[in-house]
Design a protein around this nucleic acid. Structure first.
Length: 889
RNA sequence: GCCCGGGUGGCGAAAUCGGUAGACGCGGGGGACUUAAAAUCCCCUCCUUCGGGGUGCGGGUUCGACUCCCGCCCCGGGCACCA
């Protein structure tokens, strides 16, 4: 009988399940290895082959490490809060919890069918009250802390020093002071509100809804923020200690966006007010010819003169009604808009009066929300100055003395200061430093570092998320729900939409919101990121009802040794969880500064669609496309491949895209497993190329891997009338050749798994299977035994089948990994490449212990070499031991 | 625009402390087995005017460059009025 993947795989999956083979228990006597997948949102579509790629990679590592004697933690769970379930509920009336449970069950089934060696006893679900109890608990720790800039860490709010003047004002003032300093604080932040649909939209959703004709306005709402900016410096600095992909580290660096410069104070003429600006180019201060405030800047209303008031108000209004996207589109075209306030600022060095404008190219969220405009040396200021015909004064000149036309174009490069009395002639770097000194002396400026990173908007006006464990008292104060009352569970609702005024859906659960003493529960819920911020900690101790994780379990398992997932979480999840982790670290709840030591991003698996050569579109504007089953592959005269639509005969081109439901190019792992088996799917996905690369899904390749596994099967089993049975093996290690091949394979596979170069590890297995045995040299017992173990991480079901047939009673999940014998890796001879004038002319077998002279002598004798030397004497002979000899002419 | 990553056969790729370019697989061609087919097994498969030429392009260093240096081009990703 040929290789029956179905029977083999179901047999071993049942065995693993019955024996709890992959259960991990805390065992301080053994070294641990924590290998983690980014847990999925269990969508209704089920797992797709993209998930399977990352999960297979971690599974290989988990299985390999177990065989190497590590106590491996390899868990899985569900990030199950979130919008799709809530939307689905609004459409169908199915409660999100019910839908979520269905989807999770499907994901679990698929994971098991792929043979992933998760410890299912540790499965978690972020929507389980026993889980989100601790999400709420951690939130309360964050809320209950402040960031001490002196110790550069979070501390309990009780330890916040209260200034005497605050204390003098009484208890309420103290509370207000504390609230201002907490790591979780309330603010009035604008959200994208869609009045018709009564929903709040994420920034990236706005364009889509506006396109559909809905009105979207920026509406201020009371929101919870987390003070992630306090950690900007540490989040940046600690990137250095991580073994993460360089591009991802770079993305986090850019996101945090540290920039060094100075704050400079400008007083407002005729007002008792100061405008503080941030600039990275304090050296250009003398070139500041006007000021610009963000439209939202608190001083705008105060300093605007009566004659300008109407225009300013209109401009502010216009800004509020435009989405981020519209503003971005405009900025991309270099269009600058603004309004004059009528007020003037006093230049801190020259005393000159310069006009104050407002413009939306200045952002309230960055720096101080105000700038000094230096049109000569900043492109944006230049564009603005040209639009409104403002003066442009050059204060930096190119160091090489070349002339620049400052009216035409801003000069933004470093140079030397000109027209700048305090720093005249200094190169830019020194000019900056000197200017800061001057400003500090006069008390009108100081060195300052700013970050692009903003505080984290942490509340959502949704139902399906963690409720905040907070209570609003009638006197306006906010209080934590006592720890012993956690979790605050979600009330049952059947209508999940917000109220007309935009109040979150939870506000409708009157019995839940209103407490007997007149207090009200917080009705926002947490964003989906909350649950994923700390799930890797919960896996260490998932059933603990006393703590979010016991100190013993945390100290033993953490940090995560290998974390694999898509790059789409580069700055969101990976930054947020680092932040939470650092807070927990500061408060003494976890022992590591960073949660994920090594991180790898798997590439995307691309799906095929076929498009007409003219790229025509349908009536509705969508491109015409065909799916693989509608297209036939044809071979042309010269062997070139053509694709033709079956029905019409039209020739089309293949196109590879990210798999998505809307494109219809998704490959369902269930179908692949049904036809070829889980082992084939696993090995194929790993053989496609490097884990980090994106690669197209090619069905022919899957069949090729299935053929390989069939060969493996036949290497071990032969057909008999009574069914398949193990072939007769040669005892021991077989011939020298076989022995060398085996040990070479062990060494290669081991090294390549360590490097996560699974594609090349598999090719080593293929070479072994091709060459190990023949009629004259039957498969040796030792080789068979070792190979089963080498195969196990990749194709665990087939490996178990072989292992069992070889007479082992237990699963090979914990069989020791084979060791390569260094002696067997050394052959007596090696292929010596001989070059003449740098061109390869011959290859001869040479003894490994030959001296340089002997190698030259050997090489010279080769007939090919003689022919190309043509009796000439080489000018030089280069010898590379164990590799080549080159006769230089 | 700025910042990252990457360009190697028809395709996925391998080889980078400089040392046989194209391992392994797909696709393609040929053969064996078979009454036949499927399955399986074996061989060939970068180009070539047979001298040689080839790792995106042009230079350079070197006995020797996919690998190092300089200057370009193209593709992918991220960010984007961040002062």
């Amino acid at each position: 009988m040929p290789y029956d993947h179905e029977a083999i795989e179901t047999r071993w999956q049942a065995y693993w399940e019955a024996h709890e083979t992959f259960r991990a228990d805390l065992d301080p006597s053994r070294p641990k290895f924590y290998v983690l997948d980014m847990f999925p949102y269990p969508s209704g579509d089920g797992l797709h082959v993209g998930h399977a790629e990352g999960y297979t990679a971690t599974d290989i590592v988990a299985r390999y490490k177990r065989m190497r004697g590590f106590n491996v933690l390899h868990p899985m769970g569900w990030d199950a809060f979130g919008l799709p379930a809530e939307r689905y509920a609004m459409k169908t009336g199915t409660h999100p919890a019910v839908q979520m449970e269905r989807c999770a069950a499907n994901f679990r089934r698929q994971c098991k069918r792929l043979g992933f060696s998760y410890d299912w006893s540790r499965e978690i679900n972020t929507t389980d009250p026993r889980y989100y109890k601790w999400t709420q608990w951690i939130f309360l720790k964050i809320w209950g802390s402040w960031f001490d800039p002196e110790q550069n860490k979070a501390r309990p709010i009780e330890e916040l020093p209260i200034p005497p003047e605050v204390r003098a004002k009484g208890e309420k003032a103290v509370r207000a002071y504390q609230d201002e300093h907490r790591l979780a604080y309330l603010t009035n932040a604008p959200v994208n509100w869609c009045p018709e649909l009564r929903i709040v939209l994420a920034n990236e959703e706005v364009a889509e809804y506006v396109e559909q004709g809905y009105e979207v306005v920026r509406k201020p709402m009371t929101q919870w923020m987390l003070r992630i900016t306090a950690y900007a410096e540490r989040l940046l600095a600690d990137l250095d200690e991580l073994d993460w992909p360089e591009n991802l580290i770079e993305m986090q660096r850019n996101w945090i966006g540290r920039s060094e410069g100075a704050e400079i104070d400008f007083s407002v003429d005729g007002h008792d007010a100061t405008i503080t600006v941030f600039t990275t180019r304090p050296d250009t201060l003398y070139g500041a010819t006007y000021m610009v405030l963000a439209p939202e800047h608190p001083l705008v209303a105060r300093i605007t003169t009566d004659d300008r008031r109407e225009e300013v108000r209109a401009y502010v209004d216009r800004t509020l009604h435009r989405t981020e996207r519209e503003r971005q589109a405009e900025s991309a075209e270099g269009v600058k808009t603004g309004a004059l306030t009528g007020a003037y600022a006093v230049h801190p060095l020259t005393g000159a009066k310069i006009p104050i404008w407002i413009a939306d190219y200045v952002l309230m969220g960055y720096g101080t929300g105000a700038i000094m405009a230096v049109p000569a040396h900043d492109e944006r200021d230049h564009a603005f100055a040209r639009t409104f015909r403002l003066p442009i004064v050059q204060v930096v000149a190119p160091a090489d003395g070349r002339a620049v036309d400052i009216e035409q174009e801003a000069f933004c490069e470093p140079g030397v200061a000109v027209n700048s009395p305090a720093i005249e002639g200094l190169p830019t770097a020194q000019a900056k430093a000197k200017m800061i000194e001057v400003l500090e002396e006069k008390g009108v400026g100081r060195r300052r570092v700013t970050y692009k990173l903003r505080d984290w908007l942490f509340s959502r006006q949704r139902y399906w998320g963690e409720p905040f464990p907070l209570i609003h008292r009638p006197d306006g104060t906010v209080e934590a729900v006592p720890e012993e009352e956690l979790p605050v569970t979600l009330p049952d609702l059947d209508d999940f939409s917000p109220s007309e005024t935009g109040e979150p859906p939870l506000a409708k659960a009157k019995d839940w919101v209103e407490l007997p003493d007149g207090s009200r529960r917080e009705t926002n819920t947490m964003p989906q990121w909350a649950g994923s911020c700390w799930y890797y900690l919960r896996y260490c101790d998932p059933r603990n009802d006393e703590r979010f994780v016991s100190p013993e379990a945390e100290r033993y398992w953490m940090p995560v040794d290998l974390y694999v997932g898509g790059v789409e979480h580069a700055v969101s999840h990976l930054l947020y969880s680092r932040f939470w982790h650092k807070v927990l670290y500061d408060l003494g709840y976890v022992s590591t500064n960073e949660p994920f030591r090594r991180l790898v991003n798997q590439g995307m698996i691309l799906g095929a669609t076929f498009v007409p050569k003219d790229r025509r579109r349908r009536a509705d504007g969508k491109p015409v496309q065909y799916l693989p089953h509608e297209v036939e592959r044809r071979e042309g005269e010269g062997g070139e491949v053509r694709y033709v639509v079956r029905e019409t005969g039209e020739e089309v081109e293949i196109q590879w895209d990210k798999m998505s439901k809307s494109r219809g190019n998704v490959v369902n792992p269930d179908e692949v497993v049904a036809e070829y088996g889980a082992d084939t799917l696993r090995v194929y996905e790993m053989f496609m190329g490097p884990l980090e690369h994106s690669a197209p899904w090619q069905t022919e390749g899957v069949a090729g891997i299935h053929r390989f596994l069939g060969r493996v099967y036949r290497l071990f089993f032969e057909e008999t009338p009574d069914g398949d049975r193990l072939r007769t093996l040669a005892e021991g290690e077989g011939t020298d050749r076989q022995r060398r091949l085996l040990h070479r394979t062990i060494a290669d596979v081991t090294e390549r798994i360590e490097k996560l170069a699974f594609n090349t590890a598999i090719s080593a297995l293929m070479v072994f299977v091709r060459d190990i045995a023949s009629e004259a040299e039957p498969l040796p017992r030792m080789a068979a035994d070792a190979f089963a173990r080498l195969l196990a991480p990749f194709a665990p079901h087939l490996a178990e089948e072989i292992w069992h047939a070889l007479g082992h009673a237990d699963s090979l999940a914990y069989a020791p990994w084979p060791e390569a014998d260094p002696a067997a890796l050394e052959a007596e001879t090696f292929p010596l490449v001989v070059q003449v004038a740098g061109k390869r002319r011959a290859e001869i077998q040479a003894p490994v212990d030959a001296t340089k002279e002997e190698l030259i002598e050997l090489a010279q004798k080769a007939p090919e070499v003689q022919r190309h030397l043509q009796g000439r004497t080489p000018r030089r002979v280069v010898v590379v031991p164990k590799r080549l000899v080159n006769f230089v002419l």
